[in-house]
């Protein structure tokens, strides 16, 4: 046994990270959405057939199967349709628990997406709560959802259930 190694104790654990390096090309529609984030705005697309507005748009309407060509700038505020309070720690967790993951229906959109909700105690979150996006400083805006720091209550009265019941 080599000197100086015995005090480390026997090996009982082995780090075996697995990783996959890949290149991602988001395509035309998602690139538009991501470039919108770089300008500090949410950009969606409207289907010319059914009129639904998707954000982020994949470039086609999943209902009608047609290309979505009309760009729509959406509001900075939206409504919490549903939410989850995260209490469980996991490896690589970047946010202090407990925190809230909320499905947010942006004003003008017909599709909700998931966002982090902050500046509210976890026991006060509720469906229908009106929230707004908090962006990083203008100099730090990048074409990524990382440009949105989080959402927070915007002070408006809760939305009526009928306004978001189709999006649960």
């Amino acid at each position: 046994m080599a000197d100086g190694t015995t005090d480390q104790g026997p090996v009982t654990m082995l780090a075996t990270p697995i990783s996959l390096d890949f290149e991602f090309t988001p395509g035309v529609a998602q690139s538009k959405f991501l470039r919108g984030l770089e300008r500090g705005e949410f950009l969606g697309q409207r289907c010319g057939t059914c009129g639904q507005v998707y954000v982020p748009s994949r470039g086609t309407c999943p209902t009608d199967g047609v290309a979505t060509t009309e760009d729509v700038v959406l509001g900075n505020s939206g409504t919490v349709t549903t939410y989850c309070v995260v209490n469980v720690p996991f490896a690589g967790q970047a946010i202090e628990i407990p925190y809230i993951c909320a499905q947010i229906l942006l004003d003008g959109a017909n599709l909700s997406f998931m966002g982090l909700l902050q500046e509210i105690p976890t026991d006060q979150i509720r469906m229908g709560m009106r929230v707004e996006a908090v962006w990083v400083d203008e100099a730090e805006l990048i074409p990524s959802l990382a440009s949105v720091k989080y959402f927070r209550p915007n002070g408006e009265p809760d939305a009526d259930y009928d306004t978001y019941k189709e999006y649960l």
Partner: peptide, 18 residues
């Protein structure tokens, strides 16, 4: 040229007991 392109890494920090 306006379509974005990025390099990503997906990684899981597994540890195994020996």
């Amino acid at each position: 040229s306006e379509v974005l392109h990025a390099e990503h890494r997906l990684e899981y920090p597994y540890a195994r007991s020996t």
